[in-house]
Design a protein around this nucleic acid. Structure first.
Length: 649
RNA sequence: GUCUCCGUAGCUCAAUUGGAUAGAGCGUCGGCCUCCGAAGCCGAAGGUUGCAAGUUCGACUCUUGCCGGGGACACCA
């Protein structure tokens, strides 16, 4: 039984004589913030009292009189301004826990009305190797996918890869002009990645060379503006606008100088290397030519399409190896190219419905309240990712019959999704839920957003390798009892688990600072801590040669005589709620938090209650039941997050 | 200029969406292995939640203003 849900349901019944809309008050029943207040607290008496113009404690008293929880709780107590504190009867907790220990799904009941969810995550550009910037989408999306599925929903994961954009023009251009055939034969994807970087760098070089004079000319202007603004601000100290302008002008000047430094750096990088310089000089129009290759591909050029057909499967296969290491599987990988045939139809429909209009040569949808247009066709006739995303929505709703579509994408794309969803609703797709499950940026040590262009980005593969290597060192120090092969397997679980956990345990809205130290940590609030707790429970069951199947089949009672046992039992009963909470607002960190607490509560239990050495056989059996259930909760919970466990480490 | 997000312990982050004394981890200091796995447990120090007003029984959370920072803003996805 989900105790919280049950108590809320009881409260709902009690509330009918106090309010017509009990739901918001029902949700004010929560686990206590401090165990001295009992197990659950209802905070609804205060706001209700206000509605009824009564003293809150009086209202709390009246509410308690209507609240039928005698079978579940000790008599409710009123505390402070009108908090109602509930403490679950220990014998009732014991019988509930006994049931939980026998339940295959650990108290998590499947939803009564399953929905069809599409979870859209990871979605890298197939032309470039994945880097740490792709971590969050992949890891968060995968966790949500597994949680929703476990809750009984019908869930499809979709990797909406970028396989049709300008980057392929660059690769094709690079392939035609710069390829190292031997390198390509040996490691095609690496060679393609090199070609992409090369073409990108050369295009960038010419752009910077062209831009630099303009940037330099601007400096005196900016300097003048800054001094003038400062003078004005100094002359009128009370004028806040003047002060703000002065600061702004200062910032603009700094930004202008930074732009020059950055441009100069890019230019010298090419010029300082003769072979690069020669290539740059030989290909002055490279950016335009690469764009033309893209256009030819889109127009159906035979040669470019042949190259594309050759490249894409190899790129996808390379991505697949990374996903395998993370244990991620997609139900579909429908990239941009897949929607290509539908794009013209989308634009036609938008025009027909008078949703799209022409503006400056481009076809745009304007959403009231937004200055920026939603461009569905560029002036040159090319479609954009806006068009693709609309086609994707149509497919998901008309063919896949999705009730909800989750886009696990960087928060920087918030405006795009706002416009996308608004446009989709105008097109008539207004029944389904569209949700941008946004997440914050991964920052560098300098607290600045991780830049992909800088060249210093950490590849996802090397991140994994490093984590596993580091874990291996720690495993070697700690696990003399394991064979070489077993240690390798454990190091992989620990290393990859650490990475996944670091990402998931942050609130997804927050930015977080990438740090090797934290990525590799195996103590504290980490996956390793929980995996270790799991291994310790398994150690008990193994040493005791416990037949867990028989144990679960037995009708042995749960005995909760010591505080540590009671706390553990309560914690295990909260599993179903923790899983459900993740799905409410798509927040996996609620589950990492729960699992860390569970492991922590178990560690205290482990410290305070002997199991195998317990002389009283009833108590021993009861504790073994708790151990078994703890192991299963930890394992199930970590697996929902995409993290594996091992019985020995 | 418009829009948007953020500011919490030395560091990295939470805070059940308005609840009781703001919590974890790391780091620091101090205890605990003749006892089921010490990758562990227990304890201590560490805070004017950027600043100022307001809303109310009650504010990290909501409102306004200010300070500081990130990000997005017409043809890249």
């Amino acid at each position: 039984m989900n105790l919280l849900a049950e108590l809320r349901s009881r409260l709902r019944q009690a509330l009918v004589s106090f309010t017509d809309s009990p739901e918001s008050f029902v949700e004010m029943l929560k686990p206590t913030t401090d165990s001295k207040f009992g197990d659950f607290q209802a905070n609804c008496a205060m706001p209700l009292a206000k509605q009824h113009k009564q003293p809150p404690r009086d209202l709390a008293l009246a509410l308690i009189a209507k609240l039928d929880v005698a079978d579940l709780c000790d008599p409710p107590e009123i505390a402070g301004p009108g908090f109602i504190n509930l403490r679950v009867k220990t014998d009732r907790l014991a019988t509930e826990t006994a049931l939980l220990c026998r339940d295959e799904r650990l108290g998590v009941t499947a939803v009564s009305r399953p929905r069809t969810y599409i979870v859209d995550f990871s979605s890298p550009n197939v032309a470039k190797p994945m880097h740490v910037g792709h971590l969050r989408s992949t890891v968060i999306g995968h966790a949500l996918y597994r949680v929703l599925k476990f809750l009984g929903h019908n869930v499809l994961s979709d990797n909406h890869v970028g396989d049709w954009g300008t980057q392929f023009g660059m690769i094709i251009y690079g392939f035609k002009n710069f390829r190292d055939q031997a390198a390509y034969d040996q490691a095609p994807v690496a060679e393609l990645a090199r070609l992409y970087r090369l073409v990108n760098q050369l295009s960038d070089y010419h752009e910077q060379v062209a831009n630099l004079p303009k940037l330099q000319q601007q400096i005196p202007v900016l300097e003048q503006a800054a001094t003038a603004a400062q003078r004005l601000a100094a002359a009128t100290p009370a004028d806040k606008d003047a002060a703000r302008h002065a600061r702004r002008a200062d910032q603009d000047l700094v930004a202008g100088r930074d732009a020059i430094t950055s441009a100069e750096k890019k230019i010298t990088e090419v010029q300082s290397r003769p072979e690069l310089k020669a290539l740059a000089e030989a290909h002055p129009q490279i950016a335009e030519l690469a764009r033309r290759e893209t256009a030819k591909l889109h127009a159906g050029d035979v040669e470019n399409k042949r190259l594309w057909d050759e490249f894409v499967p190899q790129c996808l296969a390379a991505l697949e190896t990374v996903y395998q290491r993370f244990g991620v599987k997609f139900d579909m990988t429908l990239g941009e190219s897949w929607y290509n045939p539908m794009l013209a139809g989308i634009v036609d429909e938008l025009k027909q419905k008078h949703l799209a209009v022409e503006s400056a040569g481009a076809t745009c949808v304007f959403i009231e309240g937004n200055d920026a247009p939603f461009i569905v066709q560029k002036a040159d006739g090319a479609y954009t990712y806006a068009t693709t995303d609309l086609a994707t929505i149509r497919h998901r709703i008309e063919t896949l019959h999705a009730d909800a579509s989750l886009y696990v994408v960087d928060s920087r794309q918030g405006e795009h999704f706002q416009l996308l969803f608004a446009t989709a609703r105008k097109m008539g797709y207004d029944q389904a839920e569209f949700r941008h499950v946004s997440f914050g940026t991964v920052l560098g040590d300098d607290r600045r957003p991780f830049k992909t262009r800088s060249g210093d980005t950490v590849g996802l593969e090397s991140l994994l390798d490093e984590a596993i290597q580091n874990a291996r060192k720690i495993v070697d120090e700690n696990s003399g009892h394991l064979s070489d092969e077993e240690r390798g397997r454990v190091a992989e679980l620990v290393g990859i688990g650490a990475i996944i956990y670091v990402d998931l345990h942050h609130n997804r809205d927050s930015d977080y600072v990438f740090s090797w130290e934290k990525m590799l940590a195996t103590n504290g609030d980490t996956a390793t801590y929980i995996q270790y707790a799991y291994a310790r429970v398994c150690g008990i069951l193994r040493k005791g040669e416990v037949d867990v199947a028989a144990l679960r089949l037995s009708d042995a009672p749960l005995l909760l005589n010591s505080p540590a046992e009671r706390v553990l039992a309560l914690q295990l009963n909260a599993f179903s709620q923790a899983v459900a909470d993740v799905a409410v607002d798509y927040r996996p960190n609620l589950l990492t938090q729960y699992l860390f607490e569970t492991a922590n509560v178990f560690a205290r239990f482990y410290d305070q209650c002997t199991v195998l050495k317990e002389p009283d056989s009833d108590i021993r059996t009861s504790r073994l039941l708790l151990c078994d259930a703890t192991a299963r909760v930890l394992k199930q919970g970590l697996e929902l997050l995409g993290i594996g466990v091992t019985e020995q480490m």
